[in-house]
Amino acid sequence: MTTSLELTGLTALPAQTWGAIRLVPLVRDEPIADLRLDARLYGDGPAAVALDRRTAYYAYVPHGFVATWTADGTPAAAYGTRLRHGDERRGDERRDGPPPCVPLRFHRRMARREDRGRLRFLPLHLALEGYLALHFGGPAVVWEEWSHRAVSQGLSPRVEQAYTGAEVAGLGDALRVFEIHPGQCGVLLYAADALAAAFVVPHPDDYRALHPSLLHDLYGELVYHYATLHGPVPDFRARIADGAVSTLAGLRAEAARQRAEWADFHTTALAGGLLEGDYEVQRVYRMGPFALSRFLPPFHRRTEQHIGETINHDDGRLAYLKTFRLSEHQVRRGHLLTRLAAADWNLEAAAALLGVTPAQLALRVEAAGFGALLRQDVLDHYRAEARRGR
């Protein structure tokens, strides 16, 4: 299924900046009360996720999200919510510890139902696994150019690199000192005014609890380098012309106009690369009136491309969103795999689609890190052709 992204029911407020980091708060006119999110911490060790009997996903997974929902629209409480017991005497208050849980080091599937009305899923990794699984099976037709490994193992293993938020310069300080607005249910995070990530949750209480989790999320190399190398970004301030306001009502109207202009500027300029275009959406799990899905971009080269995951209500409201901006190298690999699959992995047909020679395409496959999929003698032949300029 192909669809576009919309920040339905969310309004962008003026941004806050810290060095090269800009955070744009997103507030809801009305919180979504029948879906709640809570974090489940797993620690700093590496994790393995069993996708099926033959495939596993290995990554740094510091936390998972637990989604709790109701089917009849009544309010839901975040998983782990509990009453605190203790007597009223000062200094003698007994505090219960965190909800008991079993430490998890090996996960079963990216999204797994734990109880009626409760689903555990691994945020962002759900989207990354979808990207890594892109045409994972390799050639469907045994063309003579592909190696035995390509036919028998496909693209296994697929490897991509990312940085944690703790390694993105200025992000930790920004998350610590920035103000959380009343009603805030999300944020758009920019590095050097390049959109790095979007994060949306159903309820303001969920956002306050999950705001620090942005520091443990994964970010692409473009975001890391932009935050490290770029200087402070400008702060956009509202200005009212002298003589434009003479009454309190006029000042209120001018403030509303400035806020509306900021929201429009954000959705058309700053976040345009995320909201423009269509995405290939795959539904992962149905949760009553909600659906958990992940999406892939069309992999257009030299343009801003994002992968991510959403939870949408049947009425179209966006309850949850988390995105990851791909680097140009990752976009190039996705573009290459998509074109190869469209040509049934026939090198000559794929080269015609891309407007290059088979030799040039073979070298692109090698440069993208997929050289082991080609037979060595075929790759050597194409290298020789490229050297001869044919």
Rank of each mutant, 00 (worst) to 15 (best):
T3H: 05
S4G: 14
E6I: 14
L7P: 04
T8E: 04
G9V: 04
A12M: 03
W18P: 07
P25M: 00
V27I: 05
E30H: 06
R40I: 13
L41A: 09
G43C: 07
P46W: 14
P46E: 07
P46M: 09
A47C: 10
A47W: 01
V49M: 01
D52V: 00
R53E: 03
Y57E: 01
V61D: 02
A67N: 01
T68G: 06
G73L: 13
A77M: 11
T81K: 10
R82G: 15
R90V: 12
G91H: 13
D96S: 13
P99S: 14
P100R: 11
P103K: 13
F106N: 15
M110S: 06
A111E: 09
E114L: 15
R116T: 14
G117H: 09
F136W: 00
V141C: 03
V142C: 06
W143T: 02
H148V: 06
H148C: 03
A150W: 03
Q153R: 15
P157Q: 07
R158A: 11
E160T: 12
Q161R: 12
Q161V: 04
Y163V: 07
V168A: 00
A169W: 02
G170H: 04
V177W: 12
V177G: 05
I180A: 12
P182W: 07
G186V: 00
V187W: 03
L195C: 05
A198E: 07
D205G: 14
L210N: 03
H216E: 11
E221N: 10
E221R: 13
T228E: 12
A238G: 10
G243L: 00
A244K: 00
A244G: 00
L251R: 02
L251Y: 03
R252C: 02
R252F: 04
A253S: 09
A255V: 08
G272Q: 10
G272I: 01
E276I: 05
D278L: 03
Y279P: 03
E280W: 05
E280Y: 04
P289Q: 11
F290C: 04
F290H: 09
L296M: 07
P297C: 09
F299P: 08
H300D: 14
R301D: 11
D315R: 15
K322N: 12
F324A: 05
F324D: 03
R325T: 04
R325A: 12
R325L: 02
L326V: 01
H329Y: 05
H329P: 06
L340F: 08
A341H: 08
N346A: 12
E348T: 15
E348I: 13
A359D: 12
Q360H: 08
L361R: 07
L363F: 05
L363G: 06
A368N: 10
A372E: 15
L374A: 08
R375F: 09
Q376N: 12
V378S: 06
L379F: 06
A384R: 13
